[in-house]
Design a protein around this nucleic acid. Structure first.
Lengths: 181, 181
DNA sequence: AGTTAGACACATATGAGGAAAGTGTCCAGA
DNA sequence: TCTGGACACTTTCCTCATATGTGTCTAACT
């Protein structure tokens, strides 16, 4: 019933909003409504207000990004290869998707400049992956490695230190050294 | 002879300029000249142009900052303690000196937003210290550790991860792990 | 010598004002 | 349930005049 239509609406609205955000345009309710082909009031009914819409967009982008990283991690058996893949995926995704990059680096963008949340979430999920795949490792080491890997990725977005593959390799090495494996 | 007076002039001009920059004011030649009690033309004779003055200021701040870090490193015998001291000194200095912080993080400030140079210089001097104090370590490890330690320090300036002492301790640990010592 | 005040043309900020969106909320009607 | 229009209010966007700063030159001063 309405469930389906409601989800479709949200998806389409967020797609349009993301397109606008990526293009660097300001996120305006009338413009989004016009492009989606829906009335402005429908947007307000669905998302509450402008901030609600922006928050939904950030949430979706964050989830998709993190899922991509985790699946890169899970796609490799060897721990080193897993982190090379994950770091590489994160760097590539951020260089391709301005929205993700803005969220990670805290650059001012169409919504706000929330940098903390996605970085904290990334750290948490990195730690979760490590705890899951290597329960034998001490928690302190896992936390340190998770914190370090996210900081290094963000650092390389702000101040690139070479081609993504090479950087990913270095980051993976650092993680492994921290874990002493 | 003129040597002495010239150095004094440069020092005083840079002091005034730094005070203005730290206060967040725009760096203007008339204002600096007025405060130093010298004519505008003297400034142009000495520094060439506004950029020349800004560059001199950046150079001095960078040198002083890096010297402070290196002496923190040299002040400790144990490698771990040395890096705790250095990372702590860097974090403290940056939190106290807005000029240094702006230079390290690339934040827009009174001059420009040159972030690369000081970070590259810091990395180079960190590597130099390691090569000097531990010639037995492989160059690759030294470079990786130096690059990582500077990136982590900058990262913690942008996104603080706790009290400086704790963060310094963690960073030192990462360095030691990378070096496998 | 080096320094200064003043003048110059040019570029860059700053601020005030109105016009043009955009926001959030209402309601009558399809 | 959605729409379109209206509403009061805020925020952004121009435009233009003014002010301030830049970089250079020159004549006078010490």
């Amino acid at each position: 019933m309405a469930r389906r239509a409601r989800d479709d609406l949200r998806t389409e609205v967020l797609d349009v909003a993301e397109r606008l955000a990526v293009a660097g345009d300001r996120l305006s309710m009338p413009e989004i409504a016009r492009r989606v082909g829906v009335s402005r009031q429908t947007l307000y009914s669905e998302f509450g207000d402008r901030d609600g819409l922006a928050a939904a967009l950030v949430l979706r982008a964050t989830d998709e990004f993190l899922d991509r990283i985790i699946s890169a991690l899970d796609g490799e058996a060897d721990l080193h290869a897993a982190w090379v893949a994950a770091a590489g995926a994160a760097l590539t995704e951020a260089s391709v998707n301005p929205l993700v990059k803005a969220l990670l680096t805290g650059a001012p963008s169409a919504f706000g400049d929330r940098s903390g949340p996605i970085v904290a979430a990334a750290t948490e999920r990195a730690a979760g992956y490590l705890r899951r795949s290597r329960p034998d490792l001490p928690d302190d080491d896992v936390d340190l490695a998770a914190d370090t890997v996210t900081r290094l990725v963000v650092s390389h977005l702000v101040l690139p230190g070479g081609p993504a593959e090479l950087v990913a390799e270095k980051i993976a090495t650092v993680v492994l050294r921290i874990l002493r494996v």
